[in-house]
Amino acid sequence: MRKIILSASVSLDGCFEGADGGLDWHLVDDELHTHFNDQLRGMSAFLMGRVNYELMARVWPDADADPSSSGPEAEFAGIWRETPKIVFSRTLDRAGPDATVMREVDPEAILELKRRPGGDMSIGGARLAARFRQHDLIDEYRVYVHPVILGRGRPLFEPSDDRKPLALAGTHTFGNGVVLLHYKSD
């Protein structure tokens, strides 16, 4: 069965984005971007909320045509174009030619997606991840902790009464100080 993998960058104090919604504190250099590409290249789908999809769709479809793009950035543009997207939105009627819109997180529909053949699926966005967590649909967590304390911002995981035990699958420290914490669901 295919897995759903959450990959997210957070500050040391657990923020997914800054108080102003900004991500300018992310320390994504060529080493880390190459790692992201290696993780995402084999995914059968990107599962995204509308906001995340629209942000990504503004940048990545033709980023490899931008001479200022680094090698890993240009490579990701191709990965972005080639990977099907499932966008969860109540307001979008349709998305790009490579994207399917789903209105809600229907656990049975998601389990059916997981049963289909193909590579694992990557989920992005804190709000969407929270809805998937409510239904225990996330199989792996790859949390990239950036060496910065924001003080304020939106947390990756909102307060919840749901406890979820996880098993450590590995760690990795990148040259820029970012640490990957990789966990699997029990």
Rank of each mutant, 00 (worst) to 15 (best):
D93V: 12
G119P: 07
M56F: 15
H172C: 09
V59E: 10
V105G: 03
R58C: 04
L23W: 08
L180R: 03
D186T: 14
F36Y: 14
N176V: 06
G175Q: 12
A169P: 04
G96E: 09
A167W: 01
R127W: 02
V105R: 05
R152K: 14
P97A: 14
M43S: 10
A8T: 12
I110L: 05
R41H: 11
R90S: 13
R133K: 11
G42D: 11
T83L: 13
D29C: 06
R50I: 01
L180M: 10
N176P: 06
A77M: 05
F174R: 08
I86Y: 08
T100F: 07
R2I: 09
D186F: 13
A65M: 11
Y144R: 00
L168C: 11
E108T: 02
G71P: 04
D139F: 02
P159V: 03
A167E: 14
H182G: 07
L40T: 10
S122Q: 11
L12T: 08
I5C: 11
S89A: 09
D139P: 03
Q134N: 12
N37T: 10
H182V: 07
G49T: 07
M43F: 04
W25Y: 01
I86L: 10
I138K: 04
E75A: 15
D139T: 05
T100H: 09
T91K: 09
Q39C: 13
V143I: 15
R50F: 06
E112L: 14
R115A: 15
V148D: 00
R115H: 12
G49I: 04
P147D: 00
S69H: 10
A129P: 07
Y183D: 02
L23F: 11
G124R: 02
V143D: 03
L128T: 00
V143S: 01
R50L: 03
L113P: 02
H35I: 06
G170T: 07
A129L: 10
P117E: 15
P155F: 04
A169Y: 03
T34Y: 02
P72V: 12
S9K: 00
S89K: 07
G21F: 11
K164N: 13
M102C: 09
A19P: 13
H146S: 03
L166R: 05
F16A: 07
G153P: 02
S7G: 15
G22E: 10
I149E: 01
T91G: 12
D30E: 14
D139V: 08
D13Y: 07
R142C: 06
M102Y: 10
M121E: 05
